[in-house]
Design a protein around this nucleic acid. Structure first.
Length: 104
DNA sequence: CGAGCCCACAACC
DNA sequence: GGTTGTGGGCTCG
């Protein structure tokens, strides 16, 4: 476990239910300009249930990926989880961009 | 300490 | 929709 990962996970844990955030926003919060590094950390996610990594999507508002894949059952599961929280997706994108967190 | 690797991105064509 | 560029933490030497 690295300090960077701890910061990422801690931030994600702060995401309220029914809200989502993007890699860019996390990077901003961590004063890091690299979403890739975040993705790398999340993929390796050593603590899957503790960190709601399914609430993290791309700046494009597309799903991005989940557990190392950009598509597949895992991603669909991610979508299902978000939908269960009231975050629905349309045409592969976030239906309500206002659900982005933080609010700005 | 240095060089290469990896990535679930982002931007551009 | 596919390709290219960037950016940075991570792993290995």
């Amino acid at each position: 476990m690295t300090p960077f990962q701890q910061r990422v996970y801690e931030f994600i844990r702060e995401i309220p239910r029914g809200r989502v955030t993007t890699y860019a926003r996390i990077g901003n919060a961590l004063h890091c300009r690299s979403a890739q590094a975040i993705g790398q950390a999340l993929k390796r996610n050593p603590l899957s249930p503790e960190v709601p990594c399914h609430r993290v999507i791309r700046a494009d508002l597309t799903f991005g990926g989940y557990f190392g894949k950009t598509s597949g059952a895992k991603v669909r599961e991610k979508i299902a989880l978000l939908k269960a929280e009231g975050v629905e997706f349309t045409d592969g994108k976030l239906t309500d961009p206002s659900r982005l967190w933080p609010d700005d």
